[in-house]
Protein backbone atom coordinates (compact mmCIF):
# COMPACT_ATOMS: atom_id res chain seq x y z
CA UNK A 1 0.00 0.00 0.00
CA UNK A 2 2.81 2.35 0.91
CA UNK A 3 4.10 2.26 -2.64
CA UNK A 4 0.91 3.54 -4.24
CA UNK A 5 1.34 6.91 -5.83
CA UNK A 6 -2.16 7.99 -4.75
CA UNK A 7 -2.41 11.41 -3.18
CA UNK A 8 -4.27 10.04 -0.19
CA UNK A 9 -4.38 6.89 1.84
CA UNK A 10 -6.43 5.59 4.73
CA UNK A 11 -4.39 4.66 7.82
CA UNK A 12 -4.51 0.94 8.67
CA UNK A 13 -4.42 1.89 12.32
CA UNK A 14 -6.90 4.72 12.87
CA UNK A 15 -8.64 4.73 9.45
CA UNK A 16 -8.00 8.42 9.11
CA UNK A 17 -7.38 9.71 5.60
CA UNK A 18 -3.80 10.95 5.23
CA UNK A 19 -1.91 12.92 2.65
CA UNK A 20 0.52 10.50 1.01
CA UNK A 21 3.26 13.11 0.83
CA UNK A 22 2.96 13.96 4.49
CA UNK A 23 2.85 10.28 5.38
CA UNK A 24 6.05 9.53 3.46
CA UNK A 25 7.76 12.57 4.93
CA UNK A 26 6.78 11.25 8.34
CA UNK A 27 8.76 8.04 7.60
CA UNK A 28 5.55 6.15 6.91
CA UNK A 29 4.26 6.62 10.41
CA UNK A 30 0.68 7.83 10.74
CA UNK A 31 0.84 11.43 12.04
CA UNK A 32 -2.51 10.89 13.71
CA UNK A 33 -2.22 7.56 15.59
CA UNK A 34 1.50 6.78 15.34
CA UNK A 35 0.94 3.52 13.47
CA UNK A 36 4.30 2.40 12.06
CA UNK A 37 3.91 0.99 8.57
CA UNK A 38 6.25 -1.72 7.40
CA UNK A 39 9.13 -0.47 5.28
CA UNK A 40 10.84 -2.07 2.35
CA UNK A 41 14.55 -2.73 2.78
CA UNK A 42 15.35 0.23 0.52
CA UNK A 43 13.10 2.58 2.45
CA UNK A 44 14.69 1.43 5.68
CA UNK A 45 18.20 1.88 4.37
CA UNK A 46 17.34 5.33 3.09
CA UNK A 47 16.00 6.66 6.39
CA UNK A 48 18.60 4.96 8.60
CA UNK A 49 22.11 5.22 7.24
CA UNK A 50 24.17 8.22 6.16
CA UNK A 51 23.01 9.38 2.78
CA UNK A 52 24.42 7.30 -0.01
CA UNK A 53 26.67 5.34 2.34
CA UNK A 54 25.08 1.93 1.90
CA UNK A 55 26.98 -0.42 -0.38
CA UNK A 56 25.20 -3.68 -0.90
CA UNK A 57 27.07 -6.99 -0.72
CA UNK A 58 26.07 -10.47 -1.83
CA UNK A 59 23.07 -9.13 -3.72
CA UNK A 60 23.23 -12.02 -6.16
CA UNK A 61 22.98 -14.76 -3.58
CA UNK A 62 19.92 -16.91 -4.27
CA UNK A 63 18.10 -19.88 -2.84
CA UNK A 64 18.67 -23.14 -4.64
CA UNK A 65 15.37 -24.69 -3.52
CA UNK A 66 17.41 -27.55 -2.05
CA UNK A 67 14.38 -29.67 -1.04
CA UNK A 68 12.42 -29.03 -4.24
CA UNK A 69 9.67 -27.98 -1.88
CA UNK A 70 6.16 -27.64 -3.36
CA UNK A 71 5.42 -24.13 -4.67
CA UNK A 72 8.69 -22.73 -3.33
CA UNK A 73 10.10 -21.74 -6.71
CA UNK A 74 6.92 -19.75 -7.43
CA UNK A 75 7.12 -18.02 -4.06
CA UNK A 76 10.74 -17.08 -4.65
CA UNK A 77 9.75 -15.66 -8.03
CA UNK A 78 6.92 -13.70 -6.45
CA UNK A 79 9.29 -12.40 -3.77
CA UNK A 80 11.66 -11.23 -6.47
CA UNK A 81 8.83 -9.61 -8.39
CA UNK A 82 7.62 -7.64 -5.40
CA UNK A 83 11.02 -6.54 -4.06
CA UNK A 84 13.50 -6.76 -6.91
CA UNK A 85 15.70 -8.70 -4.49
CA UNK A 86 16.87 -12.28 -4.50
CA UNK A 87 15.91 -12.96 -0.90
CA UNK A 88 14.56 -11.47 2.31
CA UNK A 89 17.77 -10.01 3.75
CA UNK A 90 19.78 -7.18 2.20
CA UNK A 91 23.28 -6.76 3.57
CA UNK A 92 26.15 -4.38 3.06
CA UNK A 93 28.49 -1.76 4.43
CA UNK A 94 27.05 1.52 5.63
CA UNK A 95 27.79 4.52 7.77
CA UNK A 96 26.02 5.88 10.81
CA UNK A 97 27.03 9.42 11.73
CA UNK A 98 30.26 8.79 9.87
CA UNK A 99 30.99 5.50 11.65
CA UNK A 100 31.30 2.48 9.37
CA UNK A 101 28.98 -0.40 10.26
CA UNK A 102 28.24 -3.82 8.85
CA UNK A 103 24.50 -3.77 8.21
CA UNK A 104 21.64 -6.07 7.30
CA UNK A 105 18.01 -5.18 6.70
CA UNK A 106 15.14 -7.59 6.21
CA UNK A 107 12.33 -7.05 3.75
CA UNK A 108 9.08 -8.57 4.96
CA UNK A 109 7.58 -8.56 1.47
CA UNK A 110 9.95 -11.30 0.40
CA UNK A 111 8.25 -14.46 1.71
CA UNK A 112 7.39 -12.80 5.00
CA UNK A 113 11.03 -11.99 5.66
CA UNK A 114 11.62 -15.65 6.39
CA UNK A 115 15.08 -17.07 7.04
CA UNK A 116 16.37 -19.84 4.83
CA UNK A 117 19.94 -20.53 3.74
CA UNK A 118 20.42 -17.17 2.01
CA UNK A 119 19.18 -15.03 4.89
CA UNK A 120 21.17 -17.14 7.37
CA UNK A 121 24.31 -16.82 5.27
CA UNK A 122 23.90 -13.06 4.86
CA UNK A 123 23.33 -12.49 8.58
CA UNK A 124 26.36 -14.65 9.33
CA UNK A 125 28.48 -12.67 6.88
CA UNK A 126 27.19 -9.41 8.35
CA UNK A 127 28.54 -10.48 11.73
CA UNK A 128 31.75 -11.88 10.27
CA UNK A 129 32.40 -8.64 8.37
CA UNK A 130 31.89 -6.74 11.63
CA UNK A 131 34.46 -9.01 13.29
CA UNK A 132 36.97 -8.77 10.44
CA UNK A 133 36.68 -5.00 10.15
CA UNK A 134 36.25 -4.47 13.89
CA UNK A 135 33.16 -2.34 13.34
CA UNK A 136 29.68 -2.64 14.85
CA UNK A 137 27.00 -4.83 13.30
CA UNK A 138 23.53 -3.33 12.91
CA UNK A 139 20.66 -5.60 11.91
CA UNK A 140 16.99 -4.75 11.28
CA UNK A 141 14.63 -7.72 11.57
CA UNK A 142 11.24 -8.12 9.87
CA UNK A 143 10.28 -11.75 9.72
CA UNK A 144 7.80 -14.49 10.41
CA UNK A 145 10.67 -16.80 11.39
CA UNK A 146 12.54 -19.69 9.79
CA UNK A 147 11.55 -20.57 6.22
CA UNK A 148 9.57 -23.83 6.12
CA UNK A 149 10.42 -24.43 2.47
CA UNK A 150 14.05 -25.22 3.31
CA UNK A 151 13.17 -27.57 6.15
CA UNK A 152 15.94 -28.49 8.55
CA UNK A 153 18.38 -26.30 6.61
CA UNK A 154 16.40 -23.31 7.86
CA UNK A 155 16.43 -24.54 11.43
CA UNK A 156 20.20 -24.85 11.17
CA UNK A 157 20.41 -21.19 10.16
CA UNK A 158 19.32 -20.46 13.72
CA UNK A 159 22.40 -22.33 14.96
CA UNK A 160 24.66 -20.84 12.31
CA UNK A 161 23.69 -17.23 13.01
CA UNK A 162 23.89 -17.85 16.76
CA UNK A 163 27.41 -19.21 16.28
CA UNK A 164 28.32 -15.99 14.47
CA UNK A 165 26.81 -13.96 17.33
CA UNK A 166 29.03 -15.89 19.72
CA UNK A 167 32.08 -15.07 17.62
CA UNK A 168 31.20 -11.38 17.55
CA UNK A 169 30.61 -11.44 21.30
CA UNK A 170 33.95 -13.12 21.99
CA UNK A 171 35.68 -10.68 19.64
CA UNK A 172 34.26 -7.70 21.53
CA UNK A 173 32.42 -6.43 18.48
CA UNK A 174 29.20 -4.52 19.23
CA UNK A 175 26.02 -5.86 17.69
CA UNK A 176 22.77 -3.90 17.73
CA UNK A 177 19.47 -5.36 16.58
CA UNK A 178 16.35 -3.35 15.77
CA UNK A 179 13.09 -5.29 15.82
CA UNK A 180 10.55 -4.05 13.32
CA UNK A 181 7.11 -5.47 12.64
CA UNK A 182 7.11 -8.46 12.87
CA UNK A 183 10.02 -10.21 14.59
CA UNK A 184 9.00 -13.76 15.29
CA UNK A 185 9.80 -17.39 15.97
CA UNK A 186 13.07 -18.78 14.61
CA UNK A 187 14.68 -15.39 14.09
CA UNK A 188 13.62 -14.07 17.50
CA UNK A 189 14.86 -17.36 19.00
CA UNK A 190 18.30 -16.97 17.44
CA UNK A 191 20.39 -13.99 16.31
CA UNK A 192 17.76 -11.33 17.04
CA UNK A 193 17.80 -12.07 20.76
CA UNK A 194 21.59 -12.29 20.96
CA UNK A 195 22.40 -8.64 20.28
CA UNK A 196 24.23 -6.47 22.81
CA UNK A 197 21.46 -3.91 22.47
CA UNK A 198 17.95 -4.57 21.24
CA UNK A 199 15.68 -1.73 20.11
CA UNK A 200 12.15 -2.18 18.78
CA UNK A 201 9.77 0.02 16.89
CA UNK A 202 6.46 0.66 18.66
CA UNK A 203 3.82 -2.06 18.54
CA UNK A 204 5.85 -4.41 16.39
CA UNK A 205 4.71 -7.99 16.69
CA UNK A 206 7.43 -9.76 18.72
CA UNK A 207 6.93 -13.34 19.78
CA UNK A 208 7.82 -16.98 19.67
CA UNK A 209 4.73 -18.68 18.24
CA UNK A 210 1.78 -17.46 16.24
CA UNK A 211 -1.00 -15.83 18.23
CA UNK A 212 -3.40 -18.74 17.77
CA UNK A 213 -0.87 -21.33 18.90
CA UNK A 214 0.12 -19.18 21.88
CA UNK A 215 -3.52 -18.70 22.90
CA UNK A 216 -4.20 -22.41 22.58
CA UNK A 217 -1.14 -23.31 24.67
CA UNK A 218 -2.16 -20.81 27.33
CA UNK A 219 -5.43 -22.66 27.92
CA UNK A 220 -8.13 -20.42 29.29
CA UNK A 221 -5.69 -17.74 30.42
CA UNK A 222 -6.53 -14.28 29.23
CA UNK A 223 -3.70 -12.89 27.19
CA UNK A 224 -2.79 -9.26 27.89
CA UNK A 225 -3.83 -6.71 25.28
CA UNK A 226 -0.23 -5.98 24.43
CA UNK A 227 0.73 -9.68 24.18
CA UNK A 228 3.59 -10.27 21.73
CA UNK A 229 4.30 -6.62 21.08
CA UNK A 230 7.45 -4.54 21.49
CA UNK A 231 5.88 -3.06 24.60
CA UNK A 232 5.24 -6.53 26.08
CA UNK A 233 8.84 -7.56 25.38
CA UNK A 234 10.05 -4.33 26.98
CA UNK A 235 7.84 -4.82 30.03
CA UNK A 236 9.39 -8.26 30.57
CA UNK A 237 12.96 -7.15 30.18
CA UNK A 238 13.58 -8.73 26.80
CA UNK A 239 14.58 -5.55 24.95
CA UNK A 240 16.36 -2.34 25.85
CA UNK A 241 13.98 0.24 24.48
CA UNK A 242 10.94 0.90 22.33
CA UNK A 243 12.04 3.63 19.94
CA UNK A 244 9.92 5.73 17.59
CA UNK A 245 11.00 5.38 13.99
CA UNK A 246 12.05 9.02 13.83
CA UNK A 247 14.49 8.41 16.69
CA UNK A 248 16.02 5.12 15.57
CA UNK A 249 18.84 6.62 13.53
CA UNK A 250 19.89 9.04 16.26
CA UNK A 251 19.78 6.27 18.88
CA UNK A 252 21.92 4.01 16.72
CA UNK A 253 24.47 6.78 16.16
CA UNK A 254 24.59 7.39 19.88
CA UNK A 255 25.17 3.72 20.65
CA UNK A 256 27.77 3.26 17.95
CA UNK A 257 29.61 6.36 19.19
CA UNK A 258 29.71 5.02 22.74
CA UNK A 259 30.67 1.48 21.81
CA UNK A 260 33.49 2.47 19.52
CA UNK A 261 34.84 5.04 21.96
CA UNK A 262 36.10 2.55 24.55
CA UNK A 263 39.60 3.27 25.76
CA UNK A 264 40.18 0.18 27.89
CA UNK A 265 41.33 -2.80 25.88
Amino acid sequence: MSNKPDAFLRCEGCKKVLFSKEFVKNLRVCPNCGHHYRLSADERIEITFDEGSFVELDADMKSEDPLQFPEYAEKLARGFASTGRNDSVVRGMAKLGGFPVSAAVADFRFMGGSMGSVAGEKITRTLETAIDERIPAVIFTATGGARMQEGLLSLMQMAKTSAACRKAYDAGVPYICVFTDPTMAGVLASYASLADVILAEPKALVGFAGARVAAQASGGQKLPDNFQTSEFAYEHGMIDAVVQRKDVRATLINLVTHFTGGKHG
Binding site: D60, M61, E64, V118, G120, E121, M156, A159, K160, A163
Partner: peptide
Protein backbone atom coordinates in the same frame (compact mmCIF):
# COMPACT_ATOMS: atom_id res chain seq x y z
CA UNK B 1 27.44 -24.96 11.46
CA UNK B 2 29.05 -22.22 9.38
CA UNK B 3 28.91 -24.51 6.38
CA UNK B 4 25.24 -25.41 6.73
CA UNK B 5 23.10 -23.87 4.04
CA UNK B 6 22.61 -24.23 0.32
CA UNK B 7 22.70 -21.12 -1.84
CA UNK B 8 23.77 -20.05 -5.28
CA UNK B 9 26.26 -17.25 -5.66
CA UNK B 10 27.12 -15.25 -8.70
CA UNK B 11 30.58 -16.15 -9.98
CA UNK B 12 32.00 -12.62 -9.75
CA UNK B 13 31.58 -9.88 -7.22
CA UNK B 14 29.22 -11.78 -4.98
CA UNK B 15 31.45 -12.03 -1.95
CA UNK B 16 32.73 -9.19 0.15
Amino acid sequence: YRNMGVQIEAPIGGRS
